[in-house]
Write a protein that binds this DNA or RNA. Structure first.
Lengths: 212, 212, 212, 212
DNA sequence: TATGAATGAGTTTTCATTCAT
DNA sequence: CATGAATGAAAACTCATTCAT
């Protein structure tokens, strides 16, 4: 995805417009207006509107990927890296908060929703792996299946980002994200009845069912 | 909100259309087409399109409220009632899955997003109360603040419903919702073995097999 | 093809516009302008522009068919009826002169050129039959194959109509059409060496090759 | 008309595009695309689009003229030369079949239709002369006036070329053109047995089999 | 209640063309 | 010779809405 300067400007404007007023607000007229050029000028840079939306979506992913600093991290640490990278990414590009997890916005275009689904699945895939490893490693409680763990973590992350976006960035997303992560850790850590002592005992990955 | 039969039909069609193809798909032409009447005929039943959308949104709430079986429940039980009512509600009206928690769909209209925000806040308010009471009663761990508890519970609930909608209702939402609730309970229940006199009960719970 | 009054007006305007300035001149704006209504108003009467063009073409055929008064005529007489009906038809609706035999005008639309081809083939089919019968009956010389006869007759007919259209109707098409028919008869009648005497002898259809 | 190599390429591309999809298909974008250059580059070679179309039309004539092998020929022979040159010309440059005799394609431009009319008149002029001479020389029957003779000959020639173009060159145009010419001769030759001293020669001609 | 006919504003896109480089 | 970037005009079409019937 090598974008020219103009193309990047267009994508940025499109993102901002969508964040401000939904896809209804993402019109060629508005985008070109935001750049101070005429509508036909846009067509020098993108084949059509669909192309703009598509690049916009693909860009999410690249931004997201780029935001993960430690790509080697796995297990609980990998999940933490992933989750926190979400917060810093969105905090640094607020319009993303309104658009990033709003698949329904692009529902009308077959190709786009396919793109988004694909992106989601890919993310889910690598997260599943991390959850599995974290559970095996005893970093995460063994009594909850991986698909549920995914929901327990990503659900709150998405909701926090949405709340931030809808509140017009009323709070510090990164800080609140850290708080959320701490809370998540409390709930997901192996439920040590002896309160953290002799952690090693729990390493074996107990009672796990392979249904997930 | 006393709707005539025709008005209900219109709202239903509008909901379905929005679920199918986003608000871009919610046009007067499509709605009237779905009912087999002409466009001007719609204006006999609603002042304008915005009115339709607004009633649609208000309807969410009424449906949601109506879905709560035990209005007296408070504390953990109240939360459970609320959460599970979400699942049964959506399961009984699948288009809601694509629309109900997709505030961004209606973002472009000032009034609508205000309506939605209000609705969200009201829900959050009564849930906060329940969380507070549940924490006081020792039903929920005390080491997580209420706003976080809200996210930890509602985030996964929303995500599960969204997944169900996007998967084209591929799984049994109510069953999976129960599983989610069980997982949530595990993570939220007071886990201090010293203070939790009922700890033994939970231990058994941990080894549960496919009870969900 | 049951057209409303408005639809008929639209088709007439479209025909006139096309005759005046080619299909480049057949725009929704021009058509609606010709009727004194706005562009969107057209879409109440036709699904889209292609539909207008299609109906226009289908209309040619119906007009043409309607113009043939004696549908029972066959042989030379049938051909004469057909040819002369072309002249009276076009004379009564001058824009047809510029459009009727200009298949290339509608070349850009797959469906339309298919429609036109179909129409042409149908006409050619019934004319072939007439030529065959005329030749069998000795009304037409036997030394020219039917496909050639078709060209020898229809070619000049089309050219005359085109000349009339391009000359801005400078001459009396029907009169000139009659002259053309007479000339055609002279060239196509059985080449009687004894100058018309004992016509009956020629009835046998001589030297005919069945290669056509 | 001295065209540079690039100009010739442009004209050829324009001709092909017009043949393929009508003038609607003849756009600066398509032409430049066909040559693999950008749109503004075209304006190095032609002042504007109208210029391209005009040169295209003038080119028809030059091609047509160049196709006439025996410029001295007059009378029936001259006509034959002219007619057959049409067939060889078009056969050697198939797109011409769709464009050459389709004046209506260029009807929307004043200047172009004037050019075309002029060209047509010039051709008609020289052909009239030949017809007159042929008639005087007794090569052509005397009972049909020259303007009619013109239509009787040129009409079928045009129609055959059009049929060839519309059939996607399904048959051998030159061969079929010869057949047409033979048929035309049969119909146009003086057929009065008393006045035609060479009548016997023609009689043999009448029974010809597949000599074409 | 409903419809047929219409409309003004706006949609995406294409057109031929220009201009600085 | 050619391009990249742009433009004014116009294309086809959709939008929500109105109004007379």
């Amino acid at each position: 995805m090598n974008l020219t300067k103009r193309q990047k400007e267009i994508i940025d404007a499109a993102l901002q417009l969508t964040a401000d007023g939904g896809i209804q607000n993402l019109t060629i007229k508005h985008v070109s207006g935001a750049l101070g050029i005429t509508e036909p000028a846009l067509y020098r840079h993108f084949k059509n509107k669909a192309e703009i939306v598509k690049v916009m979506i693909v860009n999410f992913e690249e931004l997201a990927d780029a935001a993960i600093t430690d790509r080697e991290a796995d297990g609980l640490c990998g999940i933490e890296t992933f989750v926190k990278s979400r917060f810093t990414l969105v905090a640094g590009n607020p319009p993303l908060a309104k658009v990033m997890f709003s698949e329904e916005l692009f529902m009308d275009d077959e190709e786009c929703s396919a793109l988004l689904l694909d992106m989601m699945h890919r993310h889910r895939g690598s997260l599943r792996r991390m959850f599995l490893n974290a559970r095996k490693a005893g970093e995460i409680r063994g009594d909850i299946e991986v698909d549920m763990l995914f929901r327990l973590v990503l659900g709150p992350v998405r909701l926090l980002i949405k709340q931030w976006g809808m509140s017009k960035q009323a709070f510090d997303l990164v800080k609140e994200g850290n708080r959320l992560w701490n809370a998540l850790c409390k709930t997901l850590k192996e439920n040590n009845p002896v309160s953290g002592f002799e952690q090693s005992t729990w390493k074996g990955n107990r009672h796990e069912k392979k249904s997930d």
